[in-house]
Lab assay of single mutants.
Amino acid sequence: MVQKSRNGGVYPGPSGEKKLKVGFVGLDPGAPDSTRDGALLIAGSEAPKRGSILSKPRAGGAGAGKPPKRNAFYRKLQNFLYNVLERPRGWAFIYHAYVFLLVFSCLVLSVFSTIKEYEKSSEGALYILEIVTIVVFGVEYFVRIWAAGCCCRYRGWRGRLKFARKPFCVIDIMVLIASIAVLAAGSQGNVFATSALRSLRFLQILRMIRMDRRGGTWKLLGSVVYAHSKELVTAWYIGFLCLILASFLVYLAEKGENDHFDTYADALWWGLITLTTIGYGDKYPQTWNGRLLAATFTLIGVSFFALPAGILGSGFALKVQEQHRQKHFEKRRNPAAGLIQSAWRFYATNLSRTDLHSTWQYYERTVTVPMYSSQTQTYGASRLIPPLNQLELLRNLKSKSGLAFRKDPPPEPSPSKGSPCRGPLCGCCPGRSSQKVSLKDRVFSSPRGVAAKGKGSPQAQTVRRSPSADQSLEDSPSKVPKSWSFGDRSRARQAFRIKGAASRQNSEEASL
């Protein structure tokens, strides 16, 4: 019999049943779409005989028809080659250093092939080196495509196609095609072959870009420019304004007297070369007005044109410092986490200390709560409330009815002989401070409620009492009544008793 458990639990079988086999339907690529829901599959020993999904071999995947050992070796080799080519560490840098020397040698020989004295001697060596480079780069490109299958997102032919569309893979295939075209054109020995050789060798310069396949330098440059984009835009904007204004004023001053400034384009060329401190010297002002304007705008514009270099330099320094700090933080993070875990385990398992309490023990206690009866409008029989619902239920009951529930009420002091009981919340009678006064009792026990209740009776009109401690106690149990005489010590004692009862009640409510 096959059962599914969608909550991750395992159904224990009877003692008479045989052992169960467990598997996940959602992990089987050969299962139909209706059953690939991630549910837990529990099947008996007879299920494989019936041809269940556990008995079927995997229909898809890279190692579907391969033995386990061969499949493990296949995956291990794939991961190894992918890490060597895409994430070089340790001795893997030897291969990348060899590729760099190969590319650099091709670049140097290409430069010498353009010089007439070394053209014949360098062409033969360059031809052999180009063949070696094409073979190495071609094999490396196909190995990269194959090894990318170790990543989940690059599996299958669609994943390989996605990997081949990456920018550096596109550069690799462009350089490979250009190198093959250069060799094919150079072997023909005609004029067209020579011109094609010179034009296609430009694409071989892109080999130097592939040295940084992970794009660390470009990411660093982009992060620095993005972090200081506002400062760079401000400096370039002001420098551009200085360039336009200086070129226009010098053009007006030199026009008609200097042949170097016949057009405004000549003035812009002079301004750009001057403000960037290049100074070719092919154009320069000759009149005193033009020289004065050139000197003034040079002092202003050079500072703004040189400002981005300082901004980028400081940004690079701060970014490198931040990377070093992050690297040290990552080195200290795992030991710190292990130290915290060890300290907590020692703290939680220390049996010699009796003052340690688990944080979840508070929620494991069961509280007896009286249940409210809507018919009699009273609190009758009580029941046990689950631990997770205790706090919310108690808050709702307290807010609606005004009752305070507590588990172990402390012993109440008995009323003394000299001070009789003053009210239901005086704190001297046991069992009276455990409940709050309802809204109805407060209204009818207050002086205003009594006056409103007995407004029509003649006794209420004739008998008038001065405010005393009895009425103030019933009005607000948490307030201290004001004494009408300064020498009345009994009223002071009563006030301290009320304060103590109120503080105890607040602490009990907070504990609930």
Rank of each mutant, 00 (worst) to 15 (best):
M1V: 00
M1K: 01
M1T: 00
G8S: 14
G9D: 15
S55C: 11
A62V: 15
N79K: 13
L81P: 06
L85R: 04
H96P: 10
H96N: 14
L101H: 07
F104S: 12
L107F: 11
S113F: 03
T114A: 11
T114I: 11
E119G: 13
S122L: 12
Y127C: 12
E130K: 10
R144Q: 15
R144G: 15
A147P: 02
Y154D: 12
G159V: 03
G159E: 12
G159R: 00
K162R: 13
C169F: 15
D172G: 03
V175L: 15
A178V: 07
V182M: 12
A185T: 14
A185G: 12
Q188K: 10
G189V: 03
N190H: 09
N190S: 11
A193D: 13
A193V: 02
T194I: 00
S195P: 15
S195C: 13
A196V: 10
L197P: 08
R198Q: 15
S199R: 13
L200P: 00
R201H: 15
L203P: 00
Q204H: 08
Q204R: 04
I205V: 01
L206R: 04
L206P: 02
R207W: 01
R207Q: 06
M208V: 02
I209T: 05
R210H: 09
R210C: 00
R210P: 00
M211R: 02
M211V: 14
D212E: 06
D212G: 09
D212A: 00
D212V: 01
R213W: 05
R213Q: 06
R214W: 11
R214Q: 11
R214P: 00
G215R: 04
G215E: 01
T217I: 00
T217N: 07
T217P: 00
K219N: 10
L221R: 07
G222D: 05
S223P: 02
V225I: 12
V225F: 09
V225D: 07
H228Q: 08
H228Y: 13
K230Q: 05
K230M: 00
E231Q: 08
E231G: 05
E231D: 04
T234P: 12
A235V: 01
Y237C: 07
I238L: 11
G239R: 10
C242G: 11
L243F: 14
L243V: 08
S247W: 09
S247P: 01
S247L: 04
F248S: 14
L249P: 05
V250G: 09
V250A: 03
V250L: 12
A253T: 04
A253S: 12
E254D: 08
K255R: 11
G256R: 08
N258Y: 02
N258S: 14
D259N: 10
D259G: 10
D259Y: 09
H260P: 06
H260Y: 12
F261C: 05
F261I: 13
T263A: 05
T263I: 06
Y264N: 04
A265V: 04
A265T: 10
A265P: 01
D266G: 01
D266E: 00
A267T: 04
L268F: 14
L268P: 08
W269C: 02
W269L: 05
G271V: 08
G271R: 04
I273N: 08
I273M: 04
T274M: 08
T276N: 10
T276I: 03
T277S: 06
I278T: 10
I278N: 06
I278F: 07
G279D: 03
G279C: 02
Y280C: 08
Y280H: 07
G281E: 02
G281R: 01
G281W: 07
D282N: 05
D282V: 03
K283E: 12
K283R: 12
Y284C: 10
Y284D: 07
P285L: 09
P285H: 06
P285S: 08
T287N: 02
G290D: 01
G290S: 06
G290V: 04
R291S: 02
L292P: 11
L293P: 08
A294V: 06
A294G: 15
T296P: 03
G301S: 09
G301D: 06
F304C: 03
F304S: 01
F305L: 06
A306P: 07
A306V: 12
A306T: 15
L307P: 09
A309V: 02
I311N: 07
L312S: 01
G313E: 11
S314P: 11
G315R: 01
A317T: 14
L318V: 13
K319R: 04
V320I: 10
E322G: 06
R325G: 03
H328N: 03
F329S: 10
K331T: 00
R332G: 04
R333W: 09
R333Q: 09
P335A: 04
P335L: 12
P335S: 14
A337V: 07
A337T: 06
A337G: 05
L339R: 03
L339Q: 06
I340T: 03
I340M: 07
Q341R: 11
Q341H: 02
S342L: 05
A343S: 09
W344R: 02
T349I: 14
N350I: 08
N350K: 13
N350H: 09
L351F: 14
L351V: 14
S352P: 15
R353H: 10
R353G: 01
D355E: 13
D355V: 03
L356V: 14
L356R: 13
S358F: 13
T359K: 09
T359A: 05
W360C: 05
Y362C: 13
T378I: 14
P386S: 11
L388F: 15
P411L: 13
G418V: 15
P420L: 15
P430S: 07
